[in-house]
Design a protein around this nucleic acid. Structure first.
Lengths: 193, 193
DNA sequence: CATTTCTTGTACCATACGGTACATGACTTC
DNA sequence: GAAGTCATGTACCGTATGGTACAAGAAATG
């Protein structure tokens, strides 16, 4: 017997309902009873379909990963836009009130990651990779991409706790403008030398 | 009857033992049974002294706040050092393996803050204020202080999850060097104009 | 010394959790 | 239509949790 002991084929939309419930709760720490109430199916059947609570969490993470990949796809950004407008668009999308639950949920997964959950760590790594690739389309300097990633994470924490998205926005803008300024400057130097 | 229903005078060192146990666990989510085992006192007596589980958490947060204030006191930094060396020293201290539990614990409090706990929110606000004041001693530009705060938080998340303190270190250094470069440049401009 | 108050251990309670046993009915397949 | 499989509800189990009842010593206080 391999790792997945048993997991029947899920009814249409069940997994999405679970992810939606988790997002609304802003955490994966929903009891099976609460979850079952939310998705309109008995706890009994949840276990029946998924096999275990852990399996629910695991599959929910995978599905969330897919959703995020679609939500933050490169194509969804205005093509050919400057780095600054692109990052600002990303930040606006991340802090969209309608997506707050999703942001909370991803932060909850991050917590599980720093608490040692292997699945959560995988999720985090993948998420970082996704964002790095996305940013890399607009920012050539890898060090700057790295810095933006750090700022984004910190800004998300600040936003979730204080409800204020402005500090993050300002910091991101600062990073981008100083970078573009420096790049332009080096350009000019190289050209006038 | 006011808010604190009952809380006897605590035995010497009890609160510190609790904070130490929380730090070792890296979270406030320790059951009373586990906590009692750690501090060598019965669960019965924990409730007796503190009044409730919630009170334990609350007082532990306050004590942790004191500890951090002492640990990151301005005097503890090399006086008259440059902004960069100061921030690097802070980062080194924050990511000291011996303090990993404390860092985990503060992040756990942050999680409680974004989950709505009023006490945790207060802790977070105070913590931000403390760091901002500390950084303000070395960095005059408030926007830069704000940015460093965001980077620090993001860097802490990255460090806790991946175990790698280098990305944070690099990003912090980047912020500082570009800032000092810009400041020096403006200085020169102003002087040579 | 008698009485009251404080301290502590043991045993317990109610609740919530993830998960299961079992029964019952529906559906398929020969 | 008999036999087996699947889907589902109800009732339950074992465990962990925060917290309490109660009793019995220990210490203070008249």
């Amino acid at each position: 017997m391999t790792s997945q002991a048993k997991s029947r084929r899920l009814p249409e939309g069940l997994l999405d309902s679970c992810v939606a419930a988790f997002a609304e709760a802003g955490t994966l720490d929903l009891s099976l009873d609460q979850l079952s109430r939310h998705v309109g199916i008995s706890k009994r059947m949840l276990i029946h379909y998924f096999g275990s609570r852990e399996a629910i969490e695991h599959r929910a993470m995978l599905r969330l990963e897919d959703n995020l990949r679609a939500h933050f796809a490169p194509e969804s950004l205005p093509a050919g836009s400057s780095a600054e407008t692109a990052v600002m668009a990303l930040w606006r999308r991340a802090t969209d009130p309608a997506s707050k639950g999703v942001l909370l949920l991803t932060m909850d997964v991050s917590r599980r990651a720093w608490n040692g959950s292997a699945a959560a760590r995988r999720f985090y790594r993948e998420q970082q990779r996704l964002w790095a690739a996305l940013l890399g389309r607009f920012v050539s300097d890898k060090a700057v991409v790295e810095e933006i990633l750090q700022v984004l994470q910190g800004a998300a924490v600040t936003y979730l706790i204080t409800g204020d998205a402005q500090p993050g926005k300002r910091s991101l803008k600062r990073v981008l403008t100083t970078w573009t300024a420096r790049v332009g400057q080096e350009h000019r130097k190289r050209h006038t030398r």
